[in-house]
Design a protein around this nucleic acid. Structure first.
Lengths: 297, 297
DNA sequence: TCGGGTGATCGCACTTCGTTATCGGTCTGT
DNA sequence: ACAGACCGATAACGAAGTGCGATCACCCGA
């Protein structure tokens, strides 16, 4: 069996077909004509020696070996694009491009401090930030769509393919309108709350549920929202209070403030996460610039 | 900045230049003409936006960003070839190809048992075995030249990029000609020994050195050899004795036998090792088929 | 049976990638 | 100092890879 004639292009097209759910759709997504996709996928199948897509009259199914190949190919393609992206010069003439995902809970001066630190070591290195839920982040880390994630450290968020390292801990406080002067456990029992929906805030909600048990809290949730902005908006309107890590105090709207509850201090840890497979010199430098900073490891 | 026009070929050629130490040498190694290499490397540099090789009158130097890029590119290329290799059908029509490195010390029925087990799960999956020293193995694991290694588990053999998992333990015995009936600590004090050279047997020698301390042994080494076959040959000739793990008893030549020394039982552990970056479905199956077997993890 | 959907095939143009021949450069030994 | 051996870069050109539009064969629901 000779050397492969498969290249990155073959992986990219084949993956696109699987993702787009069809040859025509893939061609559209890739901005090329459909026959080119057909041809490339056929070449790939011929080289590998098995069919990836079982074509039927309408639509197709992915064969079992095809599924295995696609899983591996996705990782490989992500690794490839990562090394190119990390090495290419950007507009500023400096090298590097890192895509970071972070949970809204991880907003903190700690993050910007780490980014400043990185910027001193690698001037002009571009960092692209995207807010996303913890679950989405884990998925994107595995597919290579993001390089690094900052998320809520929680036992329910584990994956053998993803390494996590705690970066800092803080405690959960109550977000209230500025007009309120103090809070207490008793007050929480009677208050109404606006909290993120479980679909998007699964691990934070799980952590809150656990924190409610000990003091016997059963907060009445009058409203749920998908995004933090909406939650804060509701709180500012006086619809209810909400819980948030105290380290994120800086990112609160002016109308709100966050306060620790005397006698109730649930801890929350933010961790940095990355795929075991994602490994470039630049990413190591990035991770180190965060770890040295907070004396972890 | 548009999408890259860099492909696997660019990585392969650029790496070849760095490895071969020259454009002409690289061309020869790749079995192509030299101008093709020049052109491809130039295209790569243009796309990345910096020079990888600083050409001087005679020879060249690798620039700092070039070195970083090359390190990443090596990993990426290895990942690419691994996924293709793992997916391609072999002559038997079954899928998979794994390259395994093993230390001569790891020869054992445990290994063949694990391979049998894998063969039941993945019939026809090709496994390519190469004997190499522990140090070479670590290097090859990192470059992706081998997928899995079986090596002597030793504190001096550590690398953040490589994961190790102990697979089995055994004890060290003395290899003697069949004519000898029993061995003792006192006998070892007077005997001559043939042992592997330190360059190729570094970690085993370190382990032996430590094991000699407690009973106060200072074996007289009359001969050193590079390969295990040569060592056994010398022992069979009566030149001296040697030390070897008892689990490898099966692989001894007929003229020799291995015996435990009463009152001296240094332990030795064999571990399976793999690069953190090396990750395909097939390799996970391989590792699992070994780990389940010996109830580790 | 007829449109509207799928993917496969064909023929042609452009790009990529390989070749050979040749150039200009630096070292080295006379 | 100069010839010769080595290096990498360049030029010109052929072969292969890769794109395109047009078209075909097929399945399905109206």
């Amino acid at each position: 069996m000779g050397p492969t004639r498969i290249g990155i292009r073959h992986l990219r097209y084949t993956i696109a077909v699987a993702d787009a759910g069809g040859f025509r759709a893939a061609a559209e997504a890739l901005n090329i004509a459909q026959p080119a996709v057909s041809k490339t996928v056929q070449d790939t199948e011929k080289d590998l020696g098995f069919t990836i897509f079982q074509r039927g009259g309408s639509g197709f199914e992915i064969t079992e070996p095809g599924r295995v190949f696609l899983d591996d190919a996705r990782l490989t393609l992500a690794a490839f694009e990562r090394t190119i992206r990390a090495s290419r010069q950007n507009e500023l003439g400096a090298r590097g491009h890192i895509i970071v995902g972070y949970s809204a809970l991880a907003t903190s001066s700690h993050i910007s401090a780490g980014l400043d630190r990185l910027n001193r070591l690698h001037p002009g290195c571009q960092v692209e930030m995207h807010v996303m839920s913890t679950d989405t982040m884990m998925k994107n880390l595995k597919t290579g769509e993001i390089d690094i994630g900052f998320l809520l450290f929680h036992e329910s968020v584990q994956d053998p393919q993803v390494t996590q390292r705690p970066i800092w801990s803080t405690q959960i406080g109550v977000v209230v309108p500025r007009s309120i002067d103090d809070v207490s456990l008793d007050m929480l029992r009677d208050a109404d709350f606006v909290i993120g929906v479980r679909e998007n805030w699964r691990s934070f909600r799980a952590l809150l549920d656990a924190a409610f048990v000990e003091p016997g809290l059963r907060p009445s949730i009058v409203d749920e929202a998908w995004d933090v902005q909406v939650i804060f908006q509701r709180v500012a309107e006086g619809r209810g209070l909400t819980f948030y890590p105290i380290s994120a105090a800086d990112s609160l709207p002016a109308a709100l403030k966050i306060m620790a509850v005397p006698g109730w201090a649930p801890q929350l840890t933010i961790a940095m996460a990355w795929s075991n497979v994602a490994d470039t010199k630049l990413l190591r430098a990035f991770r180190d610039s965060f770890c040295d900073n907070f004396a972890c490891k």
